[in-house]
Design a protein around this nucleic acid. Structure first.
Lengths: 281, 281
DNA sequence: CCGCAAATCTCAATTATTGGGATTTTGATC
DNA sequence: GATCAAAATCCCAATAATTGAGATTTGCGG
């Protein structure tokens, strides 16, 4: 935190101005918002515009430009998390009704980076790219549950009203998280969208840091107990398998997911309940 | 060109390393490629990683991060070109078989920023975000045709083999472009994909600078003369209408596209050929 | 628990960046 | 096509911020 590349951060700060609430900016508004001098701002803008990160039109001012589209196109094809998890959400979407998502945890936000299943499903209204705040729901909880103590506490303090109803204490939340962490997955009934049940599992990288989640959301009305149990097991095992690919321990980096997929596929879903166990690595 | 925001450009240069051919980088490879010192590079990387533009994993090195996805999501919803042209490609896709595209011209590349029509059509294999080089095809030609002389000549020199077959002289190319510019649209038979006919129209902003194109590609075998003529007229008029929205002349910025759409809808497509005329403003 | 590699820190030198104000360019109106 | 206001760029000296060599710490994997 001590090191700083000021100029670079100041340029990136310009891009941070663009939010869903304010997608068009004038140079003067930017000067006011960021406190840069006129020549400096215009220098930055020239850099961003000539690289395609911004475009300007007299009538609309400055807006985000095509370079971000180009980068996103690349990102979809290079993100190791997407690469690792894509086969699993495909499998999940094929096996169960509903929508399977890969989400990433970044900047205190949850961002959907890939999805499989009914394309325009009314079930989950979080398309790729849309950030969800750390609100309710299973994804939120498996992330929160696996954050380091320090960070978890910070968010509980900051976002208490978001994370819990008014009748839940911070300690009760912590207890929930402890349990979720132990289970390796989390099921949430109608928290994000009424009538929808969601099951999520954490994806952990080095240091057991959560970097995202794999999840599936289905219509709650038509859910059966046995199917839910099967989903929970699949989500937990998928999450564990994907997590394993991000900690290279135990041999070559597990780039080939087929063994992991196979392991899940081989499961006998009518089998008796397994003891939920802390998933390893 | 004289002004420079060096540090910012050096940070953005890191993102430029990521290409379809090389989507994963190690810090050392970056040092070699960019010539930055170790502490400097790591400072930059810290900035980019903490902002979410990059993510790193021990096994895969550095890859593009979720922030670009978030920005692209915003960009789709804020780009004035997409906003202006979306109703037109919707109309075109509804009216004719095939795929309608909005493309942007930037950095000597053509980038698809939106499309309507058969989602996974085999016809046009250019999904949103994928850059196409200024190769052949109608889109290429309507852009090239409307570039300022200086830029056009530069590209003709640079990209001659791409733009024309070996039997076409630069002068012949220029003559073609002059004609395309006069017509206000361009039809290309099977240049990009065999068996596919494409019609494109230029989108011009202030100074008549081309910023993109609107186009439609259809199966050539089932194309009829009268339908092609109708498409050409629609493309030309749509391109002109959209262009009009980027030059605020003649009243308030024409943000309401309904009149323009209406004008196109009202056309009588069985009418006799109109004289192709330079479309205005 | 140890070793290797990756990442960060320290700090002085210097270079590149900044900003006030003048100037040019742009684009809308007549 | 000419005119005018606003937007964008230029100039250049002062200064503050960035840089990089090397030492040091951290973190992963055995």
């Amino acid at each position: 935190m001590t090191s700083t590349s000021g100029s670079g951060e100041r340029i990136l700060a310009i891009l941070d101005l663009f939010t869903p609430d304010r997608r068009e900016w004038s140079p003067d508004a930017m000067m006011a918002a960021l406190g840069y001098s006129r020549p400096t701002l215009y220098r930055y803008l020239k850099t961003l515009k000539s690289a395609g990160y911004l475009v300007s039109s007299p009538s609309d001012g400055l807006t985000l430009g095509p370079r971000v589209t180009e980068l996103d196109f690349l990102m979809q094809r290079s993100d190791p998390l997407i690469a690792a998890a894509a086969p699993f959400i495909k499998l999940l979407a094929a096996r169960y009704p509903g929508v399977a998502l890969i989400t990433r945890w970044y900047g205190s936000k949850i961002l959907c980076v890939a999805s499989e299943g009914a394309p325009d499903a009314p079930v989950s209204s979080y398309p790729r790219g849309q950030p969800m705040p750390i609100a309710r729901g299973g994804i939120s909880r498996v992330i929160m549950a696996n954050l380091p103590r320090r960070e978890q506490d910070r968010l509980i303090k900051t976002q208490h009203d978001m994370l819990a109803g008014p009748n839940t204490t911070a300690d009760a939340l912590r207890e929930t998280y402890r349990s979720v962490r132990r289970m390796g997955y989390c099921t949430a009934w109608g928290e994000v969208t009424p009538g929808v049940v969601g099951v999520a599992g954490p994806i952990l990288a080095a240091e057991r840091m959560p970097i995202g989640a794999i999840s599936i959301t289905s219509d709650a009305a038509s859910m059966t107990d046995t199917r839910l149990a099967a989903i929970e097991r699949d989500i937990r095992d998928s999450a564990a398998a994907i997590s394993g690919m991000f900690c290279a321990r135990g041999g070559a980096p597990l780039r080939d997911v087929r063994p992991a997929i196979q392991a899940i596929t081989d499961k006998d879903f009518s089998a008796t309940d397994q003891q939920p166990r802390r998933h390893r690595l």
